[in-house]
């Protein structure tokens, strides 16, 4: 079945992974900017990273017939460095008209600190100013509930935000409801150990229905599984769900969400 992975970090993956994903039905993906596993030293590192995301990765993906889109920001972990963050935010507009940029992301919180919150709000301001969509990272483990609520407070406190153009990622059982009932899109991340299994993601689809709900692998340089969406497809099939339902979550929903960005081009359906 054809599918889209709306959150995957391909700069950390091999070309063999692209080939495997293509064989498994991945036709498009979006790659939010995130943490490299170490803190970068200067704004120039980010400029090079954004060149990689906007120029190099789309070519690598295209070799396997996969459309590569991206989101730009300085991630929540490095946002603790406020002065560097402001330099990066000031530089981002240089890249916003690149043909594969869908918006600002993945912005969010990590340890739910004051500095992270300050930089989150400055990113939101940038997105509003440039009419960009937003992709949001919510914290992990014991920080997720608190951080997600803080993020929703900041977004809902800003009347300029169009909630249908915001995707809140890494939702789990205790955060999904607040995200969906306030009109945002929600993404479930299938990730070994720390996040959500295909079974629990299938449970959330059964509980909340497919509206404004997506799934992603968040495959990155850590222990993660870039082919996690096919695992979810298998689980939904095993439970007897229709092709139409499955396609809604793994294909139609990402297309509907991405289509709100003028850079997103219709995919050729085969």
């Amino acid at each position: 079945m054809e599918y889209i992975d709306p959150h995957i970090h391909m700069v950390s993956r091999t070309t063999d992974d692209y080939e495997t994903l293509a064989r498994m039905g991945c036709v498009a993906m979006s790659e939010p900017a995130f943490w490299a596993g170490f803190d970068r030293g200067s704004v120039e590192s980010f400029r090079d990273y954004f060149r990689q995301l906007t120029q190099f990765e789309p070519k690598r993906a295209a070799q396997f017939g996969i459309k590569h889109y991206t989101w730009l920001c300085i991630n929540a972990k490095e946002a603790e460095n406020v002065s560097l963050s402001r330099e990066v935010i000031a530089m981002i507009p240089e890249f916003l008209s690149a043909p594969n940029v869908l918006g600002i992301g993945e912005i969010g919180l990590n340890k739910n600190t004051k500095n992270e919150s300050t930089i989150f709000l400055e990113h939101v301001d940038l997105a509003v100013k440039y009419n960009q969509q937003i992709l949001i990272h919510t914290p992990h483990l014991e920080d997720k509930y608190q951080g997600t609520r803080m993020i929703l407070d900041m977004l809902m406190g800003d009347s300029r935000i169009d909630r249908s153009r915001v995707l809140v990622d890494h939702v789990e059982e205790h955060t999904i409801q607040a995200v969906l009932e306030n009109g945002f899109w929600a993404g479930m991340t299938l990730y070994p150990v720390t996040k959500c299994t295909p079974q629990r993601a299938a449970d959330m689809i059964e509980r909340y229905g497919p509206e404004r709900l997506m799934a992603n692998s968040a495959g990155d340089w850590g222990p993660s599984k870039p082919t996690a969406i096919p695992d979810l497809i298998m689980e939904l099939k095993r439970r007897g769900h229709s092709r139409e339902l499955i396609r809604r979550v793994v294909y139609d929903n990402p297309v509907a969400f991405f289509s709100q960005s003028r850079q997103f081009l219709p995919l050729e359906n085969s």
Binding site: N112, L141, E142, D143, K144, Y145, Q146, R149, M150, E172, E173, H174, R200, D203
Partner: peptide, 12 residues
């Protein structure tokens, strides 16, 4: 599942 999640969460 939701209650186990909240049990393992910091307060908001």
């Amino acid at each position: 599942a939701q209650r186990v999640q909240l049990l393992m969460s910091r307060d908001y």
